[in-house]
Design a protein around this nucleic acid. Structure first.
Length: 273
DNA sequence: ATATGCACCTGTGTGC
DNA sequence: TGCACACAGGTGCATA
């Protein structure tokens, strides 16, 4: 579900609520959440008494900096972080697998129907080395030249490359399809086959769709909600994603759907070459 | 290195 | 109505 724009919307909504506050209570009730490292009870015990110093995002990871260690949350397909102003208002359901209680009385709960998400602690110093994610596409290090060199050294199809978190961090299935549409490039093209002008258009497309996704508070196809429980509005602005069988907004050609790398892939056969 | 298939989960929509 | 099947914003592993 959540790609870079959705995670960033969540981060911005939570910053003022959690940064500077101590975690006074924690519970993790689903063992799958900590499957990669540690046990639920140990994680809960480790965060109580810590103050949130900063809330960051790295690709699709949300990072609660707690001092020497950081709590990392990855939302998988259906993970949600929901904010409750008081303990009395907190309403967990059968899909709520964890929660944190803060010193000012607010609660943050983790809800995840499919349980693909995870949370774990890492030393704050070693985040980048351990998470092993590539360049942040909205930061200054992501230049046209950087994208050009990423494309030059990969024989993969361009969409698969965009989805590879170790190359560029945070792009998922929606924003990959939308960025390629804006660039006029077919998803199945080899990365090495992109001409310089196409790489420039793709760079602009990636940045434009991610920024627009954030501005419109994310894409809510079915599950995504912000911490207040509100859906995003970017879905109505999609030009190809989930629009197969309907006319292209630019040229009227029927949008196609195919499968590439096991993922549904949407494109305009006329606008994208 | 790249692609494919499958696994992990639960829910929803579709067609017969 | 029931049932089987496809599909879903993600990722990791085993295998060609």
């Amino acid at each position: 579900m959540p790609e870079l724009p959705e995670v960033e919307v969540i981060r911005r909504a939570l910053v003022a609520r959690v940064v500077g506050y101590e975690i006074v209570e924690a519970r993790v009730s689903e063992p799958r959440l900590t499957r990669r490292r540690g046990r639920p009870a140990d994680l809960a015990r480790a965060v109580v008494g810590r103050r949130v110093e900063a809330l960051r995002r790295r690709g699709k990871f949300l990072v609660f900096v707690l001092g020497e260690e950081s709590l990392i949350v990855r939302l998988g397909m259906t993970g949600q972080l929901l904010w409750w102003d008081t303990r009395e208002r907190f309403q967990p359901d059968g899909h709520t697998h964890a929660y944190l209680g803060f010193a000012q009385g607010g609660m943050l709960s983790y809800r995840d129907v499919r349980k693909f998400g995870e949370m774990f602690l890492l030393p704050t110093q070693a985040l980048d080395a351990t998470l092993r994610v590539g360049v942040e596409p909205l930061e200054s290090a992501f230049t046209v030249a950087a994208l050009r060199s990423i494309c030059r050294e990969s024989r993969a199809r361009i969409k698969s490359l965009l989805l590879n978190q170790r190359k560029i961090a945070g792009i998922g299935n929606i924003y990959a399809d939308e960025a390629l549409f804006r660039a006029g490039v077919r998803p199945m093209r080899r990365a090495t086959s992109l001409r310089p002008e196409e790489i420039g258009l793709l760079w602009r497309g990636i940045r434009a769709v991610l920024r627009s996704g954030i501005r419109h508070r994310g894409s809510s196809i079915s599950d995504y909600r912000d911490p207040a429980g509100q859906p995003g509005n970017f879905g109505a602005l999609h030009r190809v994603y989930h629009r197969h069988g309907t006319p292209c907004r630019i040229c009227g050609t029927v949008i196609k759907r195919t499968v590439l790398g096991q993922r549904g892939t949407h494109y305009c056969p006329s606008c994208q070459r």
